[in-house]
Amino acid sequence: MWTGVIPAVTTKFKPDGSLDHAEMERCFSVQMEAGCEGIIVCGSLGEGPMLSHDERIAVLQRAQSVTKGKPTLLTVAEAGTREACELAAKAAKAGASGLMVVPSPIYHTDPAETVETLRAVAAAGDLPVMIYSNRVAYRVDVTPEIMEELAADPRFVAIKESSDDIRRTTEIINRLGDRYAVLTGVDNLALEALAVGACGWVAGLVCAFPAETVAIYRLMQAGRLKEALAIYRWFRPLLDLDVSTYLVQNIKLAEALAINSTEHVRGPRKPLSGARREAVEAIVRKAIETRPALPAAA
């Protein structure tokens, strides 16, 4: 359940801002057909904080209709622990496979508060939990020491490692062995993380380029580093678009160009424009024009 490429998908909207279920179903299906091992909805890339709880459950259910039994996770990233617990319980009732949980993105918890919050949300949902450790975006570092403190609770099963320090993957494995499934969550550190023991990739640019993302993962698992590295080097300018304040707009533009999807976002975001749009579009178009042939066995 906690291996392979698991897209953190974008949420699709109609021009009036309502959920576009048909386009989500189409785009989610593209991911599954490429060989992805599940879907995570309503994270940062999925504009979760801009959605009501009911909308998030609706997106979860749309993904479930496509994943056909493969893991479908809902992201819990609420300002308050009470609201996080409420959402976790709703996700469980809706049949989510698990949760990806972020400590409060508004109040930056200290280690004791982080542990208490994560335990409360896990208990409320009573589902398998992937801990999202992203000190860069959320300013809370879920450290290996915190992971060790939580290890006695079997509901904590995986880590989305997004500390932006490639050494962290090895530190987790050295300290905790195989207690947690460690998945890389930084697109432009993915190959490096897979090389040192990450067993999965929670990916963003996969939304626009699923075949290439899955190929890199499978080649790395097969020990075919040279072939994986060639694709990764081509992919790198695209992967850098995930590490940006504008990651949602960047990736939605990439989806529009690569898989003919839409760019509608929820305010206060606006689609890219001007020089920023031109720069991102140039990167995506060049990638499409120079797309590498993928190894047959990947």
Rank of each mutant, 00 (worst) to 15 (best):
N260W: 10
L247T: 11
L176W: 05
L219S: 06
L191S: 06
I283V: 15
K286E: 15
E255N: 01
S244T: 11
V214T: 03
T184Q: 10
R276N: 11
D240L: 15
K252H: 11
W201P: 06
T290G: 08
R285P: 12
E227P: 09
R218Y: 02
L183V: 03
C199K: 10
N174Y: 06
W234Q: 05
N260V: 02
A287D: 05
R236K: 13
L229V: 09
T262F: 02
R266I: 03
L219I: 02
Y180C: 14
L247D: 14
T213E: 03
E263F: 06
G267Y: 00
S273W: 00
L272K: 00
L241P: 13
V196A: 10
L253G: 05
A181L: 04
V265I: 12
A222I: 10
G185M: 07
E171H: 01
D178S: 05
R276Q: 11
R285N: 13
E281Y: 05
C207E: 09
A275V: 09
K226Y: 02
A211R: 07
V280Y: 12
V284K: 04
A256F: 08
Y232Q: 08
A190E: 13
Y217M: 05
A215T: 03
A282N: 12
L191V: 12
R276E: 15
G204R: 00
A279K: 13
C199T: 12
Y246A: 01
A258V: 11
L229W: 12
W234S: 09
I216D: 06
L238I: 06
L238K: 12
T290Y: 05
A275G: 04
E192W: 10
A228G: 01
L191Y: 12
E255D: 11
V196M: 13
V186P: 05
L189M: 14
T262L: 01
A282D: 13
P268T: 01
S244P: 06
C207G: 00
